[in-house]
């Protein structure tokens, strides 16, 4: 073999030898351990930190909200859908409370071709005339409470039972006292809800709690039917300390549930037109202080000053309890 060939072949052989020897050293660790890939990359990927924390992560601090949410029909909508991912919270600060509920809620609830029938959907234009959803709906428990309670009591039986209540609420359901509510003409469904709440302890009152605990479910139905059937004409309206005109301006925020003059069409919520002003003041303050629990009222009362409360009470106390046509009905 001519020597240039020999040298050439040697060169090539040397190059190949170096390559073949070098390659195993260049193969990354853990390559080929399970297959044609770096086994360590599986470890690296599995070690990444989850960003979305799940509702259990929120439970310990936001116990009350969590309990309310997990008992509601919104329990499939997890915390982080609306409030953002919780990684780094609370160390790195608060999570946002959605400002534009009308935009957020319609992601799921705007009526749209393609959405299954079982999904609750609204015609946005006809539903709330541009109001935010959380005016009426509690996002953590959006179904409107007690709206579906059916009241089927006996008014006569209710009248007999009502003898025990007359001392405070008046024989005709018109309270003689500024601080106790009138009951005549009130929504039966609302009355049932509140009595049941006293009975179960969800709502507490020195006088009402023992009285309500003594009532059976049938008694509650009968009482509610009786008072709902009474005429509220005799409501005095009382003398109020606040400025009714200023109250009227504030009352615009209450329209959605309580109507323009305090007469709402939804039986879940109370009529407040012509109600005792002292009672209205007390109740609003109780909501504000968290003594009376209602997620919606807690939210709207939070921003009210004592003067605002007095003004609102004065406005509603001065309204006619019998003008149902004035209130715009909003289902």
């Amino acid at each position: 073999m001519p020597k240039h060939i020999f040298r050439l072949v040697s060169l090539i052989a040397g190059f190949l030898a170096v390559t073949i020897i070098a390659i195993p050293f260049l193969v990354p660790d853990s390559f080929y351990r399970f297959g044609h890939y770096r086994a360590n990359s599986v470890i690296e990927i599995a070690a990444q930190e989850p960003v979305l924390q799940t509702a259990n992560y929120c439970k310990d601090c936001h116990t009350e909200r969590h309990a309310q949410w997990s008992a509601s029909n919104h329990k499939s909508v997890t915390c982080e859908i609306c409030h953002g991912t919780a990684l780094g919270h609370p160390q790195k600060g608060k999570l946002p409370i959605p400002k534009d509920a009308a935009r957020l809620c319609t992601l799921c609830h705007e009526a749209m071709p393609g959405r299954p029938r079982t999904q609750p959907q609204i015609q946005v234009a006809q539903h709330s005339s541009g109001q935010q959803c959380n005016v009426c709906h509690n996002p953590h428990s959006p179904k409107i409470a007690a709206a579906l309670v059916k009241v089927a009591g006996n008014a006569a039986a209710g009248k007999r039972k009502a003898a025990d209540c007359a001392a405070c609420h008046g024989e005709a359901g018109i309270s003689p006292n500024d601080t106790w509510p009138n009951l005549a003409g009130q929504h039966a469904a609302y009355l049932v809800r509140i009595l049941a709440a006293y009975k179960s302890g969800d709502q507490k009152d020195v006088a009402m709690t023992p009285l309500a605990q003594a009532l059976g479910d049938a008694d509650i139905q009968n009482l509610a039917t009786f008072y709902a059937g009474l005429n509220c004409k005799g409501a005095a309206g009382g003398k109020a300390a606040g400025d009714a005109a200023a109250g009227k301006v504030l009352a615009k925020n209450c329209v959605a549930c309580h109507g323009e003059t305090g007469i709402g069409s939804n039986p879940a919520w109370p009529n407040i037109a012509g109600q005792q002003p002292g009672y209205l003041v007390n109740v609003l303050k109780a909501f504000k202080a968290g003594l009376r629990k209602d997620p919606m009222m807690a939210g709207v009362s939070r921003g009210l000053s004592d003067t605002d409360i007095a003004n609102l009470a004065a406005y509603y106390a001065a309204q006619n309890c019998q003008s149902p046509k004035q209130g715009k009905a909003k289902p």
């Binding site: 599995a46 989850p50 979305l52 499939s76 997890t78 299954p116």
Partner: peptide, 18 residues
């Protein structure tokens, strides 16, 4: 994969409300 190996659901499954 970093979630399912820790006993969690994938993020999309976790948040799907329906």
């Amino acid at each position: 994969y970093h979630r399912i190996t820790k006993g969690l659901q994938p993020a999309c499954v976790e948040v799907c409300p329906v």
